[in-house]
Nucleic acid binder design. Structure first.
Length: 572
RNA sequence: GAUUCCGUAGCUCAGCAGGUAGAGCAUAUGCCUUUUAAGCAUAGGGUCCUGGGUUCGAGCCCCAGCGGGAUCACCA
């Protein structure tokens, strides 16, 4: 039970009055819709004979009432349109209640209504629906943030990130551009799915709850299954399951997977995020680079009609082919240092020089990765493939066909961030076991993100997995770039946040139990008493005085209890 | 986790030497037959995030906490 503010109380009163007039503020039956605001705006100016019998619904976002005529703006999924309501038209007879009372007094910004009428253009030149009849479809009891906007100017924008993310519904109502971001996100996934289906790959689903977590270097969330009496982990990746399916004989499988990583949060990291992983048999990482280019280029073109997009102050062009450069060459290009022949010791020295915090848990691969992150990654704005990673940091990738100490792996970097990660998958079960064992050793050295050994996965490989190319592509990050959003929270509907703190509040019944007459409960709340304990701490005389003051202030028409009665409440 | 900034009306934000808490929009009431963020007039609306402290007196100063943003660290 939360205290209501003045405007919320007014709306509840309106609700009661509507019911008294026989109007159901939440009617059950459907309201037929035969067009959208967007369709009207698109087509009406071309052909004024259209839309002479529309039925449309939406949320009231703006009202301008002038005597016997009113202008209202309603908003549906596609946009807004002005609606003109004239008293004598919606109330043709003597009884003007529907207009004077129901529409003017009892309806508010935020209510959802359905209207029927015809489209015309006002003297001011605005496409408007002339209403023949209207119907309340849902009464709104809370006040919307009132954002005013005209063309590009916005007044009183609703921008507080906390409120926007916690109450995303509000954000979507008042910030139409937010809706577009999520529509684009859906189109990215749609476009990617179409592309993969077009190639004949099978969309599959694999477990989110896993007894062993694997396929990536990250700390997991841990949970527990009662019946099995065992620990389960929320997946950090689905890689090992998809490869089992390749062993099983599917030649191309993919999954849009929610993954969960128990790591820090910032504008690039949410504890749960979406990744598309793809595995294709009889291919290698060179082939996969071609596929990624082709796929992303298609997605961008589907979305923007061009391969170029704006991201922050940069323009990024996804047109094929993208630059391909090996990790060592990239580091050499940006630092002039050649790490390819250096020992772990020397590399650690270089790492310190470029500003990496080196500690004993870091192996050679990790050091190189850190140097790369420090010196190269942020400088890669145009899509670039970085290839051929050190074997130590890629325990699931196949050894390079010709370069000692490296694996056949690539990442695509764009706008200074990794957008995908792929390799020629390791299918040698003996080598895979050795790599896992090295990971276990790293874990003992203190690396909390090292991988664990998955015996069943090894058993699968021992039956034989075809040479396979694998890919993981981050949907959230890709969406951020393609929609030009600076934070991952802007491309996830409900980003993870701390729970909203709820003040301890006693119920009405608790107060009545205490002895407060029901009519006085709102007064007690108004006086700032949240719990019965708060009341116990107060001097009865002071409470009595406050009640009198508030009774006057709140203009309440209820009898004042005597001071003895008030004291009596505390006698128990 | 570290550093730093922020938290005032339904919304956006002011506020000062530490002295009765302000504006715009929204809301209510009255008037007005077509307005383009705002028709005119009047009115109501506040636990100034929470809890302590300093003070005659705290929205403001001090301490602690809660929530959020930004940057950094880890990770995608």
């Amino acid at each position: 039970m939360v205290e209501l503010n003045e405007q919320e109380l007014q709306r509840r009163q309106s609700l009661d009055e509507l019911k008294k007039l026989g109007i159901d503020p939440y009617p059950a039956e459907l309201f037929e819709i035969n067009t959208t605001t967007k369709e009207i705006h698109d087509k009406f100016p071309e052909d004024n004979n259209l839309f002479q019998d529309v039925s449309i619904a939406g949320r009231i976002m703006q009202r301008r009432i002038m005597g016997a005529a009113s202008f209202t703006e309603i908003q549906d999924e596609t946009g807004r349109i002005q609606v003109y309501i004239k008293r004598d038209e919606v109330c043709p007879g003597e009884d003007k209640t529907l207009y004077n009372t129901v529409f003017k007094k009892l309806m508010d910004i935020g209510d959802i209504i359905g209207v029927k009428g015809y489209v015309f253009i006002t003297q001011m030149g605005e496409v408007t629906i002339h209403v023949r009849e209207f119907k309340l479809l849902s009464k709104s009891l809370k006040v919307l943030p009132n954002v005013k906007e005209k063309e590009d100017k916005v007044w009183d924008a609703f921008t507080d990130p906390e409120q926007r993310y916690r109450q995303r519904y509000l954000d979507l109502i008042v910030n139409p551009k937010v809706k577009q971001v999520f529509q684009k996100r859906a189109s990215v996934m749609q476009s990617m799915r179409d592309f993969l289906n077009g190639k004949g790959y099978l969309e599959v689903e694999t477990p989110v709850l896993q007894p062993l977590y694997g396929g990536a270097a990250a700390r997991p969330f841990k949970t527990y299954h009662n019946t099995l009496d065992m620990t389960l982990y929320l997946r950090i990746a689905n890689e090992l399951y998809l490869k089992r399916l390749i062993v099983g004989g599917f030649d191309g499988v993919f999954e849009f997977a929610k993954d969960f990583r128990n790591e820090g949060m910032d504008r690039f990291h949410n504890p749960e995020f979406t990744q598309m992983e793809l595995y294709v048999a009889y291919k290698d990482y060179n082939w996969m680079m071609d596929l990624v280019e082709e796929m992303v280029e298609k997605i961008v073109t589907d979305m923007h009609g061009s391969t170029k997009i704006k991201s922050g102050e940069h323009e990024i062009d996804f047109k094929r082919p993208w630059k391909r450069i090996s990790m060592y060459d990239a580091i050499k290009e940006f630092t002039t240092i050649d790490l390819s022949e250096m020992s772990e010791e020397d590399i650690a020295k270089v790492a310190k020089e470029v500003g990496v915090d080196v500690d004993s848990s870091m192996g050679k691969g990790k050091l190189i990765d850190e140097i790369f992150g420090e010196t190269v990654e942020a400088n890669l704005i145009q899509p670039t493939f970085i290839t051929d990673y050190p074997v130590e940091m890629s325990p699931l990738a196949k050894k390079h066909r010709s370069k000692e100490g490296l694996v056949e792996r690539f990442e695509a970097i764009c706008n200074g961030k990794e957008i995908c990660n792929a390799f020629s998958e390791l299918n040698d079960p003996i080598d895979q076991r050795k790599r896992f064992e090295e990971q276990v050793a790293l874990g003992k050295r203190g690396d909390q993100e090292s991988m664990v050994l998955d015996e069943d996965f090894l058993r699968a490989l021992e039956f034989g997995m075809p040479p396979t190319a694998g890919l993981g592509i981050g949907i959230d990050r890709l969406t951020m770039i393609l929609t030009n959003q600076p934070s991952i929270q802007d491309v996830i509907f409900f980003p993870q946040m701390r729970p909203e703190k709820k003040a301890e509040v006693a119920t009405d019944a608790d107060f009545i139990e205490f002895g407060i007459p029901e009519a006085w409960v709102p007064v007690i709340r108004k006086a700032g008493f949240k719990t019965v304990e708060d009341l116990n701490d107060v001097n009865p005389n002071k409470l009595f005085n406050e009640m009198g003051g508030l009774r006057k202030k709140m203009k309440l028409d209820i009898a004042m209890p005597t001071i003895e009665e008030v004291r009596g409440w505390f006698g128990k």
